[in-house]
Nucleic acid binder design. Structure first.
Lengths: 229, 229
DNA sequence: CGGACAGTTGACTATCCTCAAGTATGGTGG
DNA sequence: CCACCATACTTGAGGATAGTCAACTGTCCG
């Protein structure tokens, strides 16, 4: 989707395109000064990688947001995660991506070569343990989402989602959703209409306020009450 | 549930209870001869560990089967995985279990001290990488289940489930389900009635045959056709 | 101003859930 | 060995939640 500046040809030779930042800014792990990422950008709705492609790179979001999804042949889509500033994504089991990743909005990332990270992991137990920890954290998130998808009502799903997003944006209770209703629906296993209706219900109940469709202010107490059943 | 032989007091001192097997049989990783598991047993429906408990041990199933689940205050339950012979379970992010694990049937396991495994990981990059790989594999499984829970119909869920179980039992197309309809329902985000009805439908369509409620023979072609949409 | 697209709302439908009754199955005790 | 009970499973009828289809509104662009 969108224009495709062949993302895979550029990051390998990072010299000219963008000057390297300080190690502190571009490095992946504190104790790996040689593990430096190359800055890169994606436009809104642009694909970062597609399911089935070689998993050559790993990405850290600097600014913007990315979604990962799986899709069925008839178009049904499940978003498995949103990656916000600071998040790492693109690790896979095996040599190919089993997800598609796309930028929600114009997004800046740092690109790392997967091989290089794997080599660092085989050399440094500390790096490997950090990677293990990140994978375990992702697993916990995935399992929480499984509970939500398998056992929660539409209201509970949307409320839990808003609380989650709020937390990831600093927990101020007010934020602009970086994703469309379709993205939310495909993350929560609902339809856009149900998401929209649920927003309206939550607004009626005073659990949130909308200013425009994206800007949300939460009444976190009431929202938590919806989730905590 | 059931009798509780205080699982946590025994594995620490593995000397007397059961004679240690060969390293090959009890070890967790080939290159860690010091990482030896203690054999232990759980009765049908017995809890291995509960949500919120200290995650002191890690388990490998030798014989039998274990389920991991998360549960809401009103009893809604989501099973996040079944662990069969050979599978490792009990790793967590942080120091406490965020699941409950229970034996489906009388089950023999090997118990490992989590601390010891973590220490091995910090010493050996190879061990850490293996742990990382296992976590990544679990993550992939979890994300596939998310797609199933979020976007698939009851028929597709049950069909996919049966294909998965068949694969884990060797792919012969005939096996005895080790879990109840309730367990299946709570894994697939359905009710027992829907699971039961779906079994009946699939049997009518010739996609499977039942001999007793647990013994299943698959018509894998037709079943795959149901899943592949 | 107008077009494209995102989002909302309404009416109707379908899938799955709930409640209820009935049928196997397996273990226990006489 | 059989009767009995508890439990697992199946089936049916009706209902609720979320989905589908469609129309409409708002917003961002040029």
């Amino acid at each position: 989707m969108g224009t495709k500046p062949t993302p895979r040809s550029i990051p390998v030779a990072p010299g000219s395109r963008t000057p390297r930042r300080s190690i502190h800014e571009c490095g992946l792990f504190a104790d790996c000064p040689d593990l430096v990422g190359t800055p890169f950008s994606y436009a809104r709705e642009e694909e970062v990688y597609g399911e089935g492609e070689d998993a050559e790179f790993v990405y850290r979001v600097v600014e913007g947001a990315v979604r990962s999804h799986k899709i069925l042949s008839d178009g049904r889509r499940q978003i498995t995660g949103f990656h916000l500033a600071g998040n790492l994504f693109g690790f896979e089991q095996g040599d190919t991506h089993w997800h598609t990743a796309e930028a929600l909005s114009d997004t800046r990332v740092l690109i790392f070569q997967r091989r290089q990270i794997e080599r660092a992991a085989t050399r440094s137990a500390e790096v490997a343990c950090q990677l293990w920890g990140m994978a375990t954290t992702s697993l916990r998130d995935a399992q929480n989402l499984m509970l939500l998808l398998g056992r929660r009502s539409a209201q509970e799903r949307v409320a839990a989602f808003l609380i989650e997003v709020d937390g990831r944006f600093g927990g101020t209770g007010a934020f602009a959703l970086p994703m469309t209703r379709r993205d939310i629906a495909d993350y929560l296993g609902l339809t856009i209409e149900t998401v929209s209706r649920t927003f309206s219900q939550l607004e009626e109940n005073g659990a949130l306020r909308r200013s425009g469709s994206r800007q949300i202010t939460l009444h976190r107490g009431r929202l938590r009450h919806v989730v905590e059943n």
